[in-house]
């Protein structure tokens, strides 16, 4: 079909010229589209995501309103606390179900989210380091268990978790430093998590032998 206005022959069977939008005379020969029709399918996926987010915002807005109306009876901003927990849960779900990252990146992200939750609870409940002091070493130990589980399930590629273990050791060292400087107080838990993470890392390196050392070489190549 020819667009007389633009002077081009249009091959893709569209009823109007894509440039000037003049109607095109339809020929007798059948023309097949060069590209599949996917625009509507693409838009439907985006609507579902928007709906979930809107639901979360709506729930929190209702909670804030109730809190404001009952402020005289109960001056504590519990809606902010619940809102923070709600956001944490939403982000956990988002992290678990997001497609674009692997499970190791999700583990890092989950650790970060738990850390933020501990700091938030400390602040909101006025506990001044109690949640962090107990929560951090328990968090480290829990994630060591998660890493061990992942290594057993994915035993063919167990070396992929070595960098994660390395970060656990660093993380434990930081908590030890915080304990030494008096910021954190739970000596037993912190020492246990440090020893566990170091033993786990050393065990993997020494028993993993060449495979693990090659993985470390790749990860740290400069």
């Amino acid at each position: 079909m020819r667009c007389n206005h633009c002077g081009f022959e249009i091959l893709d069977g569209s009823p109007v010229c894509p440039f000037c939008k003049m109607a095109l005379r339809q020929g007798n020969t059948e023309v097949s589209n060069a590209y599949p029709e996917i625009r509507e399918q693409f838009r439907r996926r985006k609507r579902i995501l928007a709906a979930v987010l809107f639901f979360v915002i709506m729930v929190e807005s209702i909670l804030v309103l109730i809190n404001v109306f009952t402020l005289e009876a109960n001056p504590y901003p519990w809606s902010v606390l619940l809102g923070g927990i709600l956001v944490f849960l939403f982000l956990c779900l988002w992290n678990i179900f997001r497609v674009r990252v692997g499970h190791i990146a999700k583990i890092y992200m989950q650790m970060g989210l738990f850390l933020l939750l501990l700091l938030f609870l400390d602040k909101m409940l006025g506990k001044h380091g109690v949640f962090i002091g107990y929560g951090l070493p328990i968090l480290i130990d829990s994630f060591l268990v998660v890493i061990l589980f992942c290594m057993l399930v994915n035993h063919k590629n167990y070396q992929n978790y070595i960098l994660l273990q390395f970060f656990m050791v660093m993380f434990s060292a930081v908590t030890l430093l915080l304990m030494v400087t008096g910021v954190l107080k739970n000596q037993k838990l912190i020492s246990t998590s440090l020893v566990a993470s170091v033993l786990f890392f050393l065990g993997t390196v020494m028993l993993g032998h060449r495979k693990v050392r090659q993985e470390l070489k790749r990860k740290f190549h400069i």
Partner: peptide
């Protein structure tokens, strides 16, 4: 010139 598009402007 012959033109072919992926239909977004049609």
């Amino acid at each position: 010139v012959q033109i072919e598009t992926n239909g977004l402007w049609s």
